[in-house]
Design a protein around this nucleic acid. Structure first.
Lengths: 359, 359
DNA sequence: TTCTTTTGCTAAAACGCTTGATCAGTCGAT
DNA sequence: ATCGACTGATCAAGCGTTTTAGCAAAAGAA
């Protein structure tokens, strides 16, 4: 004989979670008891199972109980059953170092949430032990996969434990294992866009202050510069390519050399160099963009948008990198050639290049 | 197709995890079977239970099996049993917006890891729906507690769901619920330190360009300025306090007014204003620190360290904020007065203030 | 009426782990 | 010999869900 005790109307204010003080959180069982049904039924109601047959009246009663008790499902238990968690891991080597990593996180999170995943983040700041621990932690939480990201675009080794999981390299790539999925910014296209801004400004003699540090960006941005010139029918002049350390001091220090080149425009490897160059040019009594037009690269908000004049530049698509990384991980997107997926670096035009009026 | 990539070197190299292809991860049971013991024993070995009595030989056998099979504990199952997860949630309203949030994350993570916790991060970018979902997600994962952080120091409302968990406000505070634990930067001390840098530089007439935006920082930094002057026996002159919008343009725009005040030094509400002011002063043919000494606030790395000359400033202790937040959450630290814990803002001296030689 | 569906719901087995209770031997001490 | 105290390990319950198989009652078909 089954005693179907229906819950005899909880005398509390209707619709308001009652939740007395309790040591332990409300469980499915308790909801079931309150609603006078089995846990199975509650589970079915909660998950809105399509082919479950539940009377509307029952469904209602369960939902009331849930609200009444302020029930929260226990994600651990859920994941235990399903065998796989709703986590995507993101290991980053420089959340703290730059404003950039934040955008990768942001993009990854937005996209992850869109697909019902939460982000488990670990910031390694380049510490390999930390990194190993971080990956181990993620594996223990049975993440759906791991996004391994670097704060600047570069080749990287794939930590061996990473292979125990599905993973995607974000803002980096592995020369050793070319089959590893990766998503990176399209440096060459970016370099071309940057140069194009100047070409559209009517400039013909355009210098490029490249970085001294070897990196995919160094080669890519130069290639883009050359491609843009070529497309415009301007012969490439190696003398117009300088090199300097990629920070403000580097840009500043390159001023003298630059001025010997008699150019009307400069494309800097990054915004920080452009910022330094601004100082250098100003000290030489030159105005921007009147005497010399300048474009940067990175669109580092704090700098680019607020220099005097505001700097035209090309955006590093960190947000998209993060988002695309998640999509790749989930198998929703793949690089055409099976290797690294390249994300566009969109131009951001500001006042450091004058608009070209007529021919 | 998966196998090759995921399991390199499957040949029976001794001591190396063998891990054949399997749909499901290795479980405790399997380790137990491999070692010829019960799961209980394996569990005891793994967790190095102090009062467990296990023969060395057995322990050895278990450890071998673990290594052999490449076993990884399932954190979900573990947490299910223990009832509480090893997560600390961090909801931030601006990971992407500023370089600052990154430091909060960094500090929180370092401290969390130190105590065996992993960080579950949600970036809301100020979106309240997202925020609600984020908190719900964290509650479902039964986080140990939640750090609710803002990217700039400000009063905030405590979302009601947040109260379902242990929480600490980081870089913000709740006027409505003064009992809520919080950790914030010591703006007044920071303002005093900033002013002190100038005082030590021998300056007596020091202007303060405050922000126009109401915020704890506005009041605190001003209070610190006044306190420093008072301590130095200099009467406070309201005419020396200007106000401008707290960005480069604001600082630049304040130049003219500033120059009417005939001061030898300026303390800016933040580094961005200082950066703008640099431009303004330069345009007026004034040199830093020769003609006018400048200090900022925030120690925004990209700017402060690389202006010409590098900017003396005061550091916003974001890393410490995050770390202290975690400690508070875990009950390892508390504010003396039971309200908000104030973290010191350390001075960072660079070249924008000349060293004072003798009296 | 009797048989077959359909409807609404429940029982119970997992999921992978921890842990208190237990138990079979061993060893000294009486 | 007998007893207690260890030692080394196992049993089994339980953590909060999901989910498949199945059951009783109601509804339709004959």
């Amino acid at each position: 004989m089954i005693s179907q005790e229906k819950n005899p109307g909880n005398a509390a204010t209707p619709g308001v979670p009652v939740k007395m003080d309790r040591a332990h959180p409300v469980t499915l069982r308790e909801v079931a008891e309150a609603a006078g049904v089995s846990t199975a039924t509650v589970s079915l109601v909660i998950n809105k199972k399509k082919n479950a047959r539940i009377a509307d009246e029952t469904r209602q009663r369960v939902n009331d109980a849930i609200r009444q008790l302020g029930y929260r499902p226990n994600a651990m238990a859920k994941n235990l059953v399903s065998g796989t968690s709703k986590f995507i891991g993101l290991v980053a080597d420089g959340v703290a170092t730059t404003p950039f990593a934040g955008q990768i996180i942001h993009g990854a999170q937005d996209e992850a949430w869109k697909h019902g995943y939460a982000l488990l983040i670990a910031n390694t700041e380049g510490n390999l032990d930390l990194e190993k621990d971080a990956i181990a932690m993620m594996l223990e939480y049975k993440v759906r996969g791991i996004l391994y990201s670097t704060w600047f675009h570069r080749p990287t080794a794939v930590p061996s434990t990473l292979r125990e999981s599905d993973f995607v390299l974000v803002n980096c790539f592995s020369p050793d294992s070319p089959s590893a999925r990766a998503v990176v910014p399209d440096e060459a296209q970016g370099g071309q866009s940057a140069t194009d801004i100047l070409l559209r400004g009517g400039h013909r003699r355009i210098a490029f202050i490249n970085t001294t540090t070897p990196a995919p960006a160094k080669d890519g941005r130069l290639a883009g510069y050359r491609a843009a010139l070529e497309a415009a029918g301007i012969p490439f002049d190696p003398a117009l390519v300088l090199e300097a350390y990629p920070d403000q001091e580097g840009g500043y220090g390159a001023t003298a050399e630059l001025l010997k080149r008699d150019v009307s425009a400069v494309y800097c490897y990054n915004d920080r160099m452009a910022m330094g160059l601004y100082d250098g040019l100003r000290e030489n009594g030159l105005s921007i963009p009147g005497d010399i037009a300048v474009v940067g690269f990175d669109n580092q908000e704090v700098i680019a948008a607020h220099l005097r004049p505001p700097l035209s530049t090309v955006s590093l698509p960190h947000y998209e990198l993060g988002a695309a990384g998640v999509r790749m991980l989930l198998g929703l997107e793949a690089a055409p050639d099976g290797a690294a997926l390249k994300i566009e670096c969109p131009a951001v035009e500001r006042a450091s290049v004058a608009v070209h009026s007529a021919a």
